[in-house]
């Protein structure tokens, strides 16, 4: 999968690039409007990460270029502006998703995967890890080929872990992903435990292995045992 990252803050651009390269994407970078426009008219991409505040032009203008030359590409807007107008404009112009800075790389990964699934697999994609398998189309999970019944939150939790495998996810990051903005006011995130334990128990009972490791009681990691 080939991605184009458009972001004027070089350090951010490099961090995102390093991370996505490790996730086995082919990435191209553009740090300004001119470069981005040039690349968009020449090459073909599967997804574009677009910062809408660029020094030499508006990202919303680039969105029009993308819609003209990159029919297949999914677009995720990355903005520091937590402005509803920009969000609505962006989504109206055909962006697939909108993220506000600062965001977690694991969250970015999850959104990129979701956009790619929608754009390139017609929403159908099977994610497997050893005996676990998730079909994102029907939102179904199997262990050793047997169907596992999960609540929507447990499903989201497992999908998030499998997309971000081998990555430490803190309780805060998980809570933000599952409950979005509503949770940011919470004083503690212990309620994550309940969902996590239920998920672990269900997988265990279906004969699966517990791949979710607890790290010092503050974070979790989905990885090979």
């Amino acid at each position: 999968m080939k991605l184009l990252i458009i972001e004027d803050e070089i350090e951010l651009l490099i961090s995102i690039n390093n991370y996505l390269v490790r996730e086995n994407y082919i990435c191209e970078l553009a740090e300004n409007f001119r470069k981005a426009e040039e690349k968009l008219t020449i090459h073909e991409y599967d997804a574009v990460l677009l910062d809408i505040t660029l020094p030499d032009g508006s990202g919303l203008e680039l969105l029009k270029t993308i819609k003209k030359f990159q029919l297949k590409a999914g677009v995720i807007i990355i903005s520091a502006k937590n402005s509803l107008d920009d969000k609505i404009n962006g989504l109206d112009l055909g962006a697939d998703d909108y993220m506000t800075k600062p965001f977690q790389l694991s969250e970015l990964n999850s959104r990129v995967k979701a956009v790619l699934r929608r754009r390139h697999f017609n929403g159908t994609n099977i994610i497997t890890f050893r005996e676990l398998s998730i079909n994102t189309d029907g939102k179904s999970v199997t262990v050793h080929g047997n169907e596992l019944t999960l609540t929507p939150k447990e499903y989201d939790l497992l999908l998030y872990f499998m997309i971000n495998k081998n990555r430490v996810l803190t309780k805060e990051v998980i809570a933000e992903h599952l409950w979005a903005d509503n949770i940011e006011m919470a004083d503690n995130f212990d309620f994550i435990y309940t969902h996590l334990n239920n998920l672990r128990n269900k997988i265990n009972r279906a004969g699966g292995t517990n791949y979710i490791k607890t790290i010092y009681g503050m974070g979790y990691k989905f990885s090979e045992p």
Partner: peptide
């Protein structure tokens, strides 16, 4: 938010 993003991303990587 931009410098905060850079710091947070690097710390996330360090984690």
């Amino acid at each position: 938010q931009t410098p905060l993003s850079v710091a947070l991303m690097n710390l996330d990587e360090a984690l």
